[in-house]
């Protein structure tokens, strides 16, 4: 059975808030297997090659599963174009052999070696989504800290003690600190740590 991206999208789960996973895989059987595994938890889209993947990319895509060896645009080329595009999606590279290169220095967020098991795939996607949660929390944390610093710079300590806004802000900051230290997906292991740092430099400008 062969499914095109659009068909797959319609057939997948109905939850509009489900994270979006884009599978980029030239072998239809393999793509369909991943789709079957993931479609209960995510909105899955399938691209058969690099060009199609770039067309299907958008703000709403959270995770890209990218086959490294494809006819036409290679996985590496697609990856670099995704990064250039400024979209903040996480990319897991799917490789045929265990990478012999230094994976920390590559631009992807995670990698999977074929053949992939269902459990592995789920774990990787979840881990990448948790990393995005961490980034989001860190972003919010920064905005609040900046706001707090502005208040502290412009108001006297007596005014701050009276200010409900300041009190609420301080409470939110404490709360976020706790959330951040519990969402360790951002730094849990070396790969996460590097991927999180890589994300700091790009995509934050807007």
């Amino acid at each position: 059975m062969y499914l095109e991206g659009k068909t797959t999208r319609r057939e997948s789960m109905s939850d509009p808030d489900a994270p979006v996973v884009l599978i980029v895989e030239d072998e239809p059987d393999v793509a369909e297997t991943y789709n079957l595994w993931l479609q209960d938890d995510y909105e899955v889209r399938v691209a058969q090659n690099g060009d199609e993947a770039l067309d299907m990319l958008g703000e709403e895509v959270d995770v890209v599963l990218l086959d490294r060896m494809m006819p036409g645009l290679s996985g590496d080329e697609v990856l670099s174009r995704i990064r250039d595009s400024g979209y903040e999606c996480r990319v897991a590279m799917v490789t045929a052999v265990e990478p012999d290169f230094d994976i920390l220095e590559m631009g992807f967020d995670s990698y999977l070696t074929k053949p992939i098991r269902s459990e592995q795939l789920h774990e990787t996607v979840e881990n990448l989504l948790e990393r995005s949660t961490y980034d989001g929390l860190l972003q919010e944390y920064y905005s609040l800290v900046e706001k707090q610093a502005t208040l502290e710079a412009t108001k006297s300590s007596a005014e701050l003690a009276e200010s409900e806004e300041y009190e609420e802000l301080t409470g939110r900051i404490d709360e976020l600190q706790d959330n951040l230290s519990q969402t360790l997906g951002g730094i849990e292991d070396d790969e996460d740590f590097i991927a999180t740092l890589r994300g700091l430099g790009n995509g934050d400008e807007h």
């Binding site: 860190l138 972003q139 944390y141 920064y142 800290v145 900046e146 951040l180 230290s181 360790l184 951002g186 730094i187 740590f193 999180t196 740092l197 700091l200 430099g201 934050d204």
Partner: peptide, 14 residues
């Protein structure tokens, strides 16, 4: 500043 702040936070957690 934003990026340096985040860098410090992530590195501190590490």
């Amino acid at each position: 500043r934003k990026t340096v702040f985040k860098f410090c936070h992530v590195l501190s957690s590490r």
